[in-house]
């Protein structure tokens, strides 16, 4: 009697409980979607939709905003093969990468390690090293214009120390223009990534260093034998950031300072895309270059992720 009497209401209760939970879960999902929707719509409309458009436009022959468009599928990509300027752009971007990554990342790491020792004055140094990252590309380019122009600070400095023979028109000289553009990124990059390394290195426990010190390791050994292996993943992150920046963002310095010149000396992949899109108005072709940049970026991200994860598992 008692068992029966208890059993029926309990069963009903369990059923309604499951029902209740299902309804609650549905309600939770609806609330979730309503809250996420505005941000999601915004992001889809102004980031992913333009990205899809990049692919659409890259399949078109479209040589001017007011001119008709023609669907040519992959022909823009086939044109890559005969485009001498694209070859130059890839070469220049290659140089930028080969100098701009090894010229920044190892030094940033060492700088970050030195800061992480928290010797007197490290706070002030950190502020100084980080301050170039606060400067906009436009202001930064204008600052460097003051250094590089013919009667600018760099030449006047060379005159003062008696090296006037080294005077150059830095931005208008074929052999120095690309270097001058790359130098801007190195100048600000070491400090920026150095401070990021510093912050990341703060997560390493003191005990590890102390143990190493007992074994007779100096700072140099500690930096490369303890900090470096622990930072491998972070190295990957920094290399990816710098890579993506050089591939795309760095083109702004070219827009602001040299316009790809003199000749094609500073014609980089990113600048070539900008040039084709807005100056030459070969819209379809410009987006084919954009597709190239996009996929190179993704491929390199995957590659670096794979390398760092394999090295860390070692």
């Amino acid at each position: 009697m008692t068992t029966l009497g208890n059993a029926i209401p309990r069963e009903r209760k369990i059923l309604s409980n499951a029902d209740y939970h299902r309804r609650l879960a549905r309600k939770r999902r609806v609330t979730f979607l309503l809250l996420v929707l505005p941000a999601l719509v915004w992001f889809l409309a102004f980031m992913l939709w333009p990205l899809l458009n990049m692919f659409f436009i890259s399949t078109k022959q479209w040589d001017g905003l007011a001119l008709p468009q023609k669907f040519i599928f992959l022909d823009n990509f086939a044109r890559f093969l005969n485009d001498k300027n694209l070859g130059v752009a890839i070469r220049n971007t290659g140089i930028h990468l080969l100098v701009g990554i090894p010229g920044v990342v190892p030094f940033a790491f060492m700088l970050g390690f030195f800061l992480s020792l928290r010797k007197p004055g490290y706070r002030l140094l950190r502020t100084i090293f980080f301050s170039p990252s606060m400067i906009s590309v436009a202001a930064l380019a204008m600052i460097f214009l003051g250094l590089y122009r013919p009667d600018g600070m760099l030449n006047s400095f060379l005159n003062t120390i008696g090296l006037s023979s080294l005077n150059r028109v830095w931005l208008a000289n074929k052999s120095t223009a690309l270097g001058a553009i790359i130098a801007i990124d190195i100048w600000s990059g070491i400090g920026f990534y150095g401070v990021l390394f510093f912050a990341a290195l703060s997560s390493i426990s003191e005990e590890l260093y102390e143990a190493a010190q007992l074994d007779g390791a100096g700072y140099w050994t500690m930096m490369w034998k303890i900090a470096f292996p622990l930072m491998l993943d972070f190295f990957g992150v920094i290399i990816i950031l710098q890579f993506l920046y050089i591939l795309s963002g760095a083109a702004q310095n070219v827009i602001l300072l040299t316009g790809g010149g003199p000749g094609t000396a500073t014609l980089t992949l990113g600048y070539y895309l900008y040039n084709q899109a807005f100056l030459t108005q070969r819209l379809g072709y410009s987006q084919a270059i954009a597709v190239l940049i996009f996929f190179v970026g993704i491929a390199v991200i995957l590659l670096i992720r794979r390398i760092t994860s394999r090295l860390s598992n070692w």
């Binding site: 939770r28 939709w49 990205l51 954009a290």
Partner: peptide, 28 residues
């Protein structure tokens, strides 16, 4: 809010880091 959708949404937003500004400049 605990739902499986949140991982999806997070993944969508993190795509943003892969999109170069230059690439979407003309479409925008």
């Amino acid at each position: 809010i605990q739902t499986r959708l949140s991982t999806v949404v997070e993944a969508i937003f993190s795509l943003g880091f892969l999109i170069p500004g230059l690439a979407i400049l003309m479409p925008i």
